[in-house]
Simulated scan of single mutants.
Amino acid sequence: MNKGIFAGWKDVTIYVTLIFLLLVLLCVETPVLIPLAIVIAIAVFCFARRTMRNKRLTMSGYLDDIIRNIERANHYAVRNLDVGIAVFASDGKLQWKNARFEEMVGLRHVDGKRPEEVLPLPDNAFETMCVKDDEKVIAVKTRWYRMRYFSMQTKPEERARDNAVHSSLMVYLTDVTELEELKQQYHDDRLNIAFVRFDNYEDVAKGMSEAARANLTGEVSERVSQWAVSLNGFVWRSGKENCMVGFTNV
């Protein structure tokens, strides 16, 4: 009871104590003022108690508003952000997911299914994913997603009951289709350079007439050009024995 009455009085304890001491000294010096001192003491006590109660109510309301705002922000983030979120229980079955996760995997009624039944993963993927937190890029139909997963250990007292380690799994999916397509386009359009050198050109051309040498040079150039055209590339010659061929992966 006393703890409830005087809870939160730390900020005003010194001031109230000083007032009470002054009233006691006043009563000792002037006993006739004892009734008045008692009234003042009761008034100070009631005022301080009321002030502290209002302060606690104000602070409590402020903290409640903060908590509600945080909960609303978390709820909005989970429901509306462009991230698919799923929670798999310790038995490997899907326990909770947001609507975006269902949209990404393109399935409905996925509750109770294992990760490999929902996502393009190998068998027993849940056990493997619980060992180490990691991320990877996976393809689901025509889209690419970066999958991040984190294991969450159960409470120690729960594990101690059967001496087994149980982990639940959180999976986050982020759409990275545009990035992966850009990577693929870069890979396909990347320019490859090949330096070609004919080491025995002079040996072959020895003893040939000028016309034969010209025909040989033309034949070599024609073959190299045809090879470059087949690769959708180009040829740049820096001499009879050297040339550079550029082409893309497409």
Rank of each mutant, 00 (worst) to 15 (best):
M1A: 03
M1H: 03
K3G: 13
G8D: 06
W9R: 10
T17Q: 06
F20Y: 14
F20R: 04
L21H: 06
L26C: 09
L26A: 11
V28T: 07
P31V: 02
L33C: 10
I40D: 00
A41K: 01
A41L: 02
A43Q: 08
V44N: 00
C46P: 00
F47G: 14
R49Q: 05
R50Q: 04
M52T: 01
R53I: 05
R53G: 00
G61N: 10
Y62G: 11
L63P: 00
L63M: 07
I66Q: 03
I66P: 00
I66F: 00
I70S: 05
R72D: 13
N74A: 11
Y76S: 11
R79E: 15
N80R: 14
G84V: 06
G84N: 12
K93A: 13
K93G: 12
Q95P: 05
Q95M: 13
Q95H: 14
Q95T: 10
Q95D: 14
N98Q: 06
N98M: 05
E102D: 15
E102I: 07
E103P: 03
M104A: 09
V110F: 03
K113L: 15
K113N: 15
R114S: 09
R114Y: 08
R114H: 09
L119S: 03
L119M: 08
P120Q: 09
D123P: 06
D123S: 08
D123N: 06
D123G: 10
D123Y: 08
E127Q: 09
V131N: 07
K132M: 11
D133C: 10
E135D: 12
K136Q: 13
V137L: 04
T142E: 12
R146T: 07
R146I: 05
M147N: 02
M147I: 01
R148S: 12
M152I: 13
T154M: 14
E157Q: 14
E158C: 07
E158F: 06
A160I: 12
A160F: 13
A160M: 13
D162S: 08
A164K: 15
H166E: 14
H166A: 13
S167Y: 13
S168T: 15
S168E: 15
D175Y: 01
T177A: 03
T177D: 01
E178C: 02
E180K: 10
E181H: 01
Q185L: 05
D188V: 04
L191P: 01
L191K: 06
I193R: 04
F198K: 04
K206Y: 10
G207D: 04
E210T: 10
A212V: 08
R213D: 11
N215K: 15
L216E: 10
T217D: 12
E219D: 13
S221V: 12
S221E: 14
V224H: 05
S225T: 15
Q226G: 08
Q226D: 14
W227T: 11
N232A: 09
G233R: 07
G233P: 11
G233K: 07
V235D: 05
V235M: 07
R237M: 10
S238V: 10
S238F: 14
K240W: 11
E241S: 15
C243Q: 04
M244W: 02
